[in-house]
């Protein structure tokens, strides 16, 4: 059986590598961690995983990326995969975009760069908890 997956999207490889490893440390082997460097690649990944039958639990996306911005990307994801927990990662608080994502992408939370272990853990946990709650319902 395939593991459940958490997807990270960011145009900075250094963020991707440190973030996935951090997630691995925090959540261990209960999840699989996949990465994408931009919105397009992220979408493809989601589609692929779906095809494989792998369940994507959460997606953590950077906001400031070339071409498609995080909020827009998450809105698109939300339209296709409303169940995935969406978290936005940003180094620049753009309230408009956050609000946009909240309203249209069902954004769970926004993590501000630089973030702490704990932020990440709590946000992911609460997100996944909400989700399991939802499932429970």
């Amino acid at each position: 059986m395939n593991k459940k997956v958490i997807v990270c999207v960011d145009d900075e490889p250094m963020i991707l590598s440190s973030l996935t490893e951090q997630l691995q440390k925090l959540f261990g082997e209960q999840y699989q961690y996949e990465t994408a460097e931009n919105a397009e690649e992220g979408m493809e990944l989601l589609d692929e995983l779906k095809k494989e039958g792998t369940e994507v639990m959460a997606i953590v996306s950077d906001w400031l990326m070339p071409d498609v911005k995080g909020d827009e990307f998450l809105i698109r994801v939300h339209k296709k995969y409303p169940d995935i927990v969406k978290v936005m990662l940003t180094g620049q608080a753009n309230q408009k975009s956050i609000e946009n994502a909240r309203q249209h992408a069902g954004l769970h939370a926004c993590i501000y760069k630089p973030w702490t272990d704990n932020d990440l853990k709590v946000i992911i946990n609460t997100g996944l908890g909400e989700k399991s709650d939802e499932i429970a319902k």
Binding site: I15, S17, D62, T90, Q92, Y112, P114, W115, D117
Partner: peptide, 13 residues
């Protein structure tokens, strides 16, 4: 953003 991104990476790493 340009500064917070590497800071985030540093922090996590």
């Amino acid at each position: 953003h340009e500064i917070n991104t590497p800071l985030g990476a540093i922090n996590a790493s």
